[in-house]
């Protein structure tokens, strides 16, 4: 069971308080109608599914109800950082 630091509550809390939000930093296309079915399908469904460093969203569902991002190693499950939505990770696959 993961122990997750909520950057809004500034506390480590148990995984049971959170729900997983999937891969982070996927930006909704500004003009969806301008995209081909392939491009739109890519946005909808295709993911990096990283083995190792992964940037992902978490929702503090029974806490502050805020989404935030985490940089987590999907093999060791170590959470390297959590950071607020709209900010960038300091640790990336390239840097780690």
């Amino acid at each position: 069971m993961l122990l997750i630091h909520c950057p809004h509550c500034r506390e480590h809390r148990e995984e049971e308080e959170f729900s997983y939000g999937g891969e982070a930093h996927i930006v909704r296309p500004l003009e969806p109608e301008a995209l081909s079915d392939e491009e739109w399908g890519d946005y909808l469904f295709f993911r990096t599914n990283s083995r190792g460093i992964h940037h992902e969203m978490w929702y503090h569902a029974v806490g502050c109800r805020r989404y935030f991002n985490a940089t987590r190693n999907t093999v060791t499950y170590e959470i390297l950082e959590t950071y607020k939505t709209g900010t960038q990770p300091t640790i990336t696959g390239a840097s780690a």
Binding site: G21, Y59, Y67, T85, G86
Partner: peptide, 13 residues
């Protein structure tokens, strides 16, 4: 509710 929060917080803050 989670769906509304998702879009407001992550896409259209």
């Amino acid at each position: 509710l989670a769906w509304l929060e998702l879009w407001q917080q992550t896409e259209w803050p």
